[in-house]
Design a protein around this nucleic acid. Structure first.
Length: 648
RNA sequence: GGGUCCGUGGCCUAGCCAGGAUAAGGCAUUGGACUUCUAAUCUACAAAAGAAGAAAUCCAAUGAUCCGGGGUUCGAAUCCCCGCGGAUCCGCCA
C-alpha cells in the first residue's frame, strides 16, 4: 500500500477516533478546528490532544478525568496505525503510532513514490505568474537584493511541484532616469566594448556618471543659493560635501573611466537637459534613443543572465517596461482610470484617490488596513504628461492577469504601499477579485553592517563576489577536510558546496526578518548549513553503496529505538511541511525541515549500526530507512535548488 | 507626525497565523568519545599518565527577564492594549 501523506493518514485516524469519542460523550461540545498537535517529546507519542482543558470548562470536570474517560471510550481496533492512546499529564491525550505499520507504510511509500514523495499535488492547478528579481539594469545584482532570486526560485520550484503551471517573469525597468544616465555616459565614452563582466562595466559607468552629474548639479545649486534660507543652503553644502568625497573615491577606484567621463561631461553645457531629452525620446519611441537604451540595458542583462546561470536560476520571460508604453497599454490604463470616479486633477497632475476606492468598495478590511488609516493618493501622470512607475505597473498587472489566474510578486518590503495602491487601482478598474489573487511576497533587503547598500554611491557587494568567495572558501574547506581527493574532485565539490551554502543562507531565514550581511553568515560550513545537509545526504548514499543490496527481508517491527522512530516520524511529516510551504509560500519552512532531518539522521547514523546490525531483518529495515531518508533529503533540497551530491 | 515590518541565551535562528507538557537548534566557550607516539635487551598484551594529531560526526556541560508594562485565559513567546528600540515607507524617483 502506498500513501502520499503517511503522517496525515495517521492524523486522520486519530482525529476520527477522538472526534467519535467526544461526540458520544459530549454531543453539545463544539469541536475546535485543530484537534491534534505533535507533542514536544516522543515520550508523549506522535500526536497529542489538549482538548480536555476546553472540555473541562464545558463539562465542569477535571481535565485529567475527562481525558481518562475519553480514552476509555475510544476504540482503536479498526486503526492499525494507532498503537495506543493514553491520558497523560494534567489532561492530555497521547496517541502512539504502531511502529511496525507506521514505519512500513512510510518507508514503502517513499520508496515507491521516490522523486515525487512529498510533492502533494493540488486538486486545483492554476496558472501562476511569478515575478522575481527584476533588479534594475543599472548595476550588478548585489547581495542586498540577492535574497530575491533565491526566494523567487524556491517558490517557483515549490509551486510547480505542487502541480501549478508557473511562469517566471523578470520585469526590466528600463524607463526612467537611471538607464538614461548610463546611456548618456556610455555615449560620452564612445560606446566602448565592455571589459570583463558587462553588468559590472555598466554599474561603473552608472556610478561615475551620476556622481559627476550630481556634483555639477549641486555646485550650480550652491552658486544660486545666495537668496535661500541659511538652513537650506547648509543642507546643500552638506550634500555637496558628501558627493565630492564620493567623487574622490570614484576617481581613485576608476581613474581612467572617471577622468574621461569628467572631461567629456564638462564639455557639455547642460548634462541634465541631455539626460532629460533622452528620457523623453525613449518614451516617445524614437529609433535612435530606442537603440541606444536597449543596447545599454541588454549589456547589463547579459551580465545578469550569467550571474543567474551560475546559481542555476532561470527566467522564462523578460518583460520590458518600455513595451507597455510603446504598445499603448499605459495610455489605455490612464484613460480607463480617468473614466472612473477615482481620479482627480490637481495643479495639472493626475492623481488616483486610493482612499475613496477603499471606502467605496469597502476594501480596507480585505487589505488588512485599519478603518481610520487614510491612504495617500497616488500620482498617475506628471504635469509634463509622462507616466510614473506605479502607473505603468498597473498596466503591467492587467497584462499579467491576462496570462495567469494568480500573480505572485517577489518584491522588497519597502514597496508595500505601492503594491497596495496597485491593488486598489486594479479594483477601481473593475477587478476587485484580483486582490485575492495578487500576492506581494515581501522580504527585507539584506543590509551591510551600519549602512544600506547604495548603487548611486557605488557601495555594494555583488552576488558574483559572494559566489566567488563561497567557492574559494569551499575549496579551502574541502582541501582541509579531504586532502586525499584530486584537485579536480575538490573543485567539483567546492562548486556545489559554495552555491548551496549561499542559497541556503539566504532562503533559510524568515524573509520578513531584516538580515545583516556578514561573510560568516553566508559562508557557513558548520551545522545548520547546506554543506552539512549535503554531507548528510552523501553519507546516506555511501552507506547504500557499501551495503549494495536491496533490503528485501526488512522487518519494520524492529525499528523501535527512539532515534529510528523520530526519523520515521520526520520522514512521514515531509508532505505536511511541503503543503504548508506551498500554501503559505514559506520556502524557509523547507530549509528548516531539512536541517532538522539531517540532525536526526546523523544522530541515528552514529548511534546505530546499519550494515552490521544484529540481524538481517533489522539491517534491512535500517537500510530501507536510510534509503528513504536519502530520498527525502534529495526532494527537499531540490525544492531549494540545492544539489544533493553522491559523495563529498 | 502617521502607516507597515522586526525584537527569543553572548551571537545567529525556529516556534507566533490556528495559545497547551521542560521555550527547540546552531555558533562561541568547556569537557568527552577516535588515532598515533612516549625511557633504553627483545617480543607480545593490558592499563595509566603525558604529548601530538584528526573529524563537513556524535555525546555532555554552560548559558534566556522570549524588548518592557498591563490585559484576556485553567494556561501566553504565541491573542489584545500601552510603551521602548531598530528597519522601512509616506515623491510630479524607480
Amino acid at each position: 500500500m502506498v500513501c502520499v501523506n503517511p503522517f496525515s493518514e495517521f492524523y486522520t485516524g486519530c482525529e476520527t477516533v477522538l472526534k467519535d469519542a467526544i461526540n458520544r460523550l459530549y454531543p453539545d461540545f463544539p469541536l475546535p478546528s485543530i484537534l491534534l498537535d505533535v507533542p514536544p517529546n516522543l515520550e508523549f507519542g506522535e500526536l497529542a490532544a489538549s482538548v480536555c482543558f476546553e472540555l473541562a470548562k464545558h463539562a465542569k470536570n477535571k481535565p485529567r478525568t475527562i481525558a481518562q474517560e475519553l480514552v476509555q471510550a475510544m476504540d482503536v481496533s479498526g486503526f492499525s496505525l494507532i498503537d495506543s492512546v493514553q491520558a497523560a499529564g494534567a489532561g492530555y491525550i497521547n496517541f502512539r503510532a504502531n511502529s511496525e505499520v507506521f514505519s512500513s507504510l512510510t518507508l514503502k511509500s517513499i520508496k515507491e513514490l521516490d522523486a515525487t514523495y512529498g510533492y502533494v499535488k493540488t486538486d486545483k492547478p492554476k496558472k501562476i505568474l511569478l515575478e522575481h528579481t527584476s533588479v534594475n539594469p543599472v548595476h550588478p545584482i548585489h547581495i542586498g537584493q540577492a535574497r530575491n532570486p533565491m526566494l523567487g526560485d524556491a517558490i517557483s520550484r515549490i509551486l510547480k511541484n505542487r502541480g501549478h503551471e508557473v511562469s517566471r517573469h523578470y520585469y526590466v525597468d528600463d524607463v526612467g532616469r537611471q538607464s538614461a544616465v548610463i546611456a548618456y555616459g556610455y555615449t560620452k565614452l564612445g560606446k566602448p566594448k565592455p571589459e570583463g563582466k558587462p553588468d559590472r562595466f555598466i554599474g561603473e559607468i552608472y556610478t561615475v556618471t551620476s556622481c559627476i552629474m550630481e556634483v555639477k548639479r549641486l555646485n550650480k545649486a550652491v552658486k544660486s543659493s545666495k537668496n535661500l534660507e541659511a538652513q537650506e543652503a547648509a543642507k546643500l553644502h552638506r550634500e555637496l560635501d558628501e558627493w565630492v568625497s564620493i567623487s574622490a573615491e570614484m576617481e581613485q577606484r576608476f581613474p581612467q573611466l572617471f577622468n574621461k567621463l569628467l572631461a567629456e561631461i564638462s564639455k557639455d553645457p547642460d548634462p541634465e537637459e541631455q539626460v532629460g531629452k533622452l528620457i523623453r525620446a525613449y518614451e516617445a519611441g524614437e529609433e535612435a534613443a530606442k537603440q541606444l537604451l536597449r543596447e545599454v540595458c541588454e549589456l547589463c542583462l547579459k551580465g545578469f543572465r550569467e550571474t543567474l546561470c551560475s546559481v542555476e536560476i532561470s527566467v522564462d520571460c523578460w518583460d520590458w517596461e518600455s513595451d507597455l508604453i510603446w504598445n499603448g497599454d499605459v495610455n489605455r490604463v490612464i484613460e480607463q482610470l480617468k473614466a472612473s470616479p477615482y481620479v482627480f486633477e490637481e495643479n495639472g497632475v493626475l492623481e488616483f484617490d486610493a482612499e475613496k476606492v477603499a471606502d467605496d468598495l469597502d476594501l480596507k478590511k480585505k487589505l488588512g488596513i485599519s478603518d481610520d488609516h487614510e491612504l495617500t493618493p497616488l500620482t498617475l501622470v506628471r504635469a509634463d504628461g509622462t507616466s510614473l512607475y506605479t502607473t505603468r505597473d498597473i498596466a503591467y498587472h492587467l497584462w499579467k492577469f491576462e496570462q495567469a489566474e494568480r500573480v505572485v510578486n517577489v518584491i522588497g518590503m519597502e514597496q508595500t504601499l505601492p503594491q497596495l495602491q496597485l491593488k486598489l487601482a486594479l479594483s477601481a478598474l473593475g477587478h476587485p477579485d484580483y486582490i485575492a489573487n495578487l500576492t506581494h511576497f515581501a522580504y527585507s533587503l539584506v543590509r551591510l553592517p551600519g549602512y544600506r547598500m547604495s548603487s548611486r554611491r557605488g557601495r555594494y557587494i555583488t552576488l558574483d563576489e559572494v559566489m566567488d568567495g563561497a567557492a574559494q572558501r569551499a575549496y579551502n574547506e574541502v582541501s582541509k577536510r579531504s586532502p586525499h581527493l584530486s584537485d579536480e574532485e575538490k573543485r567539483q565539490i567546492s562548486v556545489f558546496v559554495g552555491k548551496g551554502a549561499v542559497k541556503y543562507a539566504l532562503v533559510s531565514v524568515d524573509p520578513t526578518k531584516p538580515v545583516v550581511f556578514t561573510w560568516d553568515r553566508v559562508l557557513d560550513f558548520e551545522n545548520n548549513s547546506a554543506p552539512y545537509i549535503q554531507y548528510s545526504h552523501a553519507r546516506a548514499r555511501s552507506i547504500l553503496r557499501k551495503a549494495s543490496r536491496e533490503p528485501k527481508s526488512a522487518d519494520y517491527s524492529l525499528l523501535t529505538d527512539s532515534m529510528e522512530r523520530e526519523l520515521v516520524l520526520m520522514l512521514a511529516r515531509f508532505p505536511e511541511i511541503f503543503l504548508d510551504a506551498a500554501e503559505n509560500l514559506k520556502p524557509n519552512a523547507i530549509a528548516d525541515y531539512v536541517n532538522t532531518l539531517a540532525d536526526k539522521f546523523n544522530r541515528f547514523y552514529t548511534k546505530l549500526p546499519v550494515i552490521k546490525a544484529e540481524s538481517v531483518g533489522l539491517s534491512d529495515a535500517r537500510l530501507a530507512l536510510v534509503d528513504a531518508t536519502r530520498i527525502v533529503f534529495h526532494n527537499a533540497l531540490t525544492l531549494l535548488g540545492i544539489e544533493a551530491p553522491e559523495r563529498m
